[in-house]
Design a protein around this nucleic acid. Structure first.
Lengths: 235, 235
DNA sequence: CGCGCGTTTGAACATCTTCAAGGCTCGTGG
DNA sequence: CCACGAGCCTTGAAGATGTTCAAACGCGCG
């Protein structure tokens, strides 16, 4: 887990997500170089990381906190395309503008990469480009599962699927339940699942009454029957 | 457009999509090497290229014809995640199984790459890996637009968006209209847009009655008023 | 020419949304 | 420390959009 400072100190050495995301494939020596093009950035809850359409000058690693990705329609309808957590990487694009908006759902600390500099580094570190391709491929697989959910599933299946997704990513296993601490509102969940907030609420209530989940507080979901949730998710 | 055989002949030289897809970034010399790991494959209309869950041993370039990508739910509901046309590349995945099924909507000829061999080539041709990342990024942007459509748009907006998408990809501009020759059924379109075939039909009829499109045959859409279609698509 | 598949159209129906109101929670300020 | 207010969540009832079910049509192919 922890690495002792070999020679000179550099910021990435103490990074909490050092062994995840794109940096995982780099040696200490290489990481030292990458650290030169990064800046630590803090974003307060509700703050904007970048807007859809903004010039793509930075890429980000989530170090702590949670980030919401979304796309807007002109009349205000919003689709949340993804929830990001520590270790996730965001901003990858071949176009020179961001294709979606990124906002902090909780206070978050990010590691900001200069895009032009990172692209230059790719020539010298093919491993890094390989890693980016890996990440993009994984995102693609996730996006396709999301498409299936949005296009074909019923409300209850959507909410169950969404809970399973969050459970896998940020759920903490306890004796009797898997605990999900939600950093997002019901509206965020609704916009991720392509339903209304009221529908999210009603599904949560139904799941609670069926003892599939517990809701100690509004921001905490305890999954009691994973198998049943899985069944309700369709697939 | 055409290249004369410089020295020894090799299959890729006469490839119709030589200047597109992943091969576009390769020199003649490099292309010659790549050609060693490829095989020409023909798939008849309705035939399977690969199944979701199959071991991912090949990647494909569409040379001619049209291919449908889709994911299935256990009860048979299907989400079409994409339509592929000449020049498109398919099969990219970091996992060792395909995440979706690929089927030919018309007689198609494909260029098949051995995955393991291609991955080996990436080390020697970083340009190729860069190109793959570029393709994956573009697919990601497309997927996100698709998510927005499936999650937030109304039926008419979905169908209009789908038509615009097809128009941009395979539409042919004439004096008075942009002609789309549809290789897919109404069901395919429905499963792409996350609606029923009946809804597709009703939207087509409404668009026709409003003179936004013409339907000379069931398989041909003439877009008469691009701006109006754009407006109906939402965004 | 006739059969079959895919498409179109209509009418009934269901799911999910919309609209409305009330409640809970948390943060703020007295 | 408690009271108050704003924002978010929940719940109910009415309503609308899109689906389901059913039937007829039309085009292409044998």
């Amino acid at each position: 887990m922890h690495r002792s400072a070999a020679s000179h100190e550099f910021p990435c050495q103490t990074c909490a997500v050092r062994d995840q995301t794109i940096c995982a494939v780099l040696s200490d020596e290489e990481l030292r170089e990458v650290s030169r093009i990064t800046t630590a950035v803090d974003v307060a809850k509700g703050g904007i990381v970048f807007f859809e359409g903004d010039e793509n000058t930075y890429l980000f690693n989530i170090v702590s906190g949670a980030v919401r990705l979304s796309k807007l329609l002109s009349d205000g309808r919003r689709q949340v395309t993804g929830f990001l957590f520590p270790g996730d990487f965001v901003g990858l694009s071949v176009a020179d503008v961001y294709a979606y908006t990124a906002e902090a759902m909780s206070d978050a600390s990010l590691c900001r990469f200069n895009r032009a500099s990172l692209i230059k580094l790719l020539d010298r570190f093919p491993k890094l480009e390989h890693r980016l391709l890996e990440l993009a491929s994984n995102e693609l697989v996730e996006a396709q599962a999301h498409l299936l959910m949005l296009g074909q599933k019923h409300v209850m299946e959507k909410i169950s699927s969404t809970l399973i997704h969050l459970m896998r990513r940020i759920g903490q296993r306890y004796d009797d339940a898997i605990v999900i601490d939600l950093p997002m509102t019901r509206t965020d969940l609704a916009e991720y699942a392509g339903v209304t907030t009221e529908s999210v609420s009603r599904c949560f209530t139904r799941l609670r009454k069926q003892s599939v989940i517990r809701l100690p507080t509004v921001w905490s979901v305890h999954v009691l029957r994973e198998d049943e949730l899985e069944r309700l998710a369709g697939n």
